[in-house]
Design a protein around this nucleic acid. Sequence first.
DNA 1: CGCGGATTTGGTGTCAACTCCAGATGCTAA
DNA 2: TTAGCATCTGGAGTTGACACCAAATCCGCG
Lengths: 135, 135
Amino acid sequence: MNIAEVARKYDLTQDTLRYYEKIGLIPPVNRTSGGTRDYNEHDCGWVDFIKCMRSAGVQIEALAEYVRLCQLGDSTIGERKEILMRERRRIADQIAEMQGTLNRLDAKIEHYARDIVPAQRELFASSVSEHTHAQ
Amino acid sequence: MNIAEVARKYDLTQDTLRYYEKIGLIPPVNRTSGGTRDYNEHDCGWVDFIKCMRSAGVQIEALAEYVRLCQLGDSTIGERKEILMRERRRIADQIAEMQGTLNRLDAKIEHYARDIVPAQRELFASSVSEHTHAQ
DNA sequence: CGCGGATTTGGTGTCAACTCCAGATGCTAA
DNA sequence: TTAGCATCTGGAGTTGACACCAAATCCGCG
């Protein structure tokens, strides 16, 4: 697969693919004799994995370190697992936080939904806050 | 409340508070006669709300638009609700995506956990991929 | 009132994560 | 073989979201 196909497949730009490789976010990609990138299945697997992690907000730094360790052989398995577990925890925390925000938003939306319609609202007139901080 | 207290309370820098106000992420804050910011409860409510939304990844642009509409009065209630619902959906989508990533990470971690220990691994020697793309 | 620390503004700096560019080289089809 | 489009590299530019700074102003206290 050439870089254009991979870019289409994973919805990334060619620049981003080259950038990820340059900074070590994916290991060096397979090349043709002429030097152009020719992604094999292994390379695609990495792109897929990294894209998934990135879009979940995993830091580039952590991923680059993970990739580096992968290239160093089996002695780094422990460290790799550490990284994955650390990022796993980070994501879980963030999900929890977002869930809280979601609830808060729901309350606010709910409020707007069954709230006093504009016409009735006039009665309250100069009330300072026309929005409500449903906590 | 002066800006220092608010910054401490919400774990933001004074610069960030001023920045948020400057770009319209929170409405203009109450001031003393001399011109220094003097946050009242209303202002604090906004800071709290915005901080929550921001740390869940809601775009500054959407929030600024919401704040702008809030300042325009009741005729914008419909639009405001639209924005909140749109962002709600975005967050829900992102949670779902992150949940997927979490599962994928779990599979990988699990793999590392009960995987062949280094010693045994030697048997497989030159295997190309010492990492595994558990899909 | 005077002083020192807090706060103000406008502006510049920083950092991550791309994104774009130019000039050179590779690849493919006629 | 060659025209023309794709891809290459190194480096510069962009964007979002702040962080930092200097010089001026404010505020509380003795």
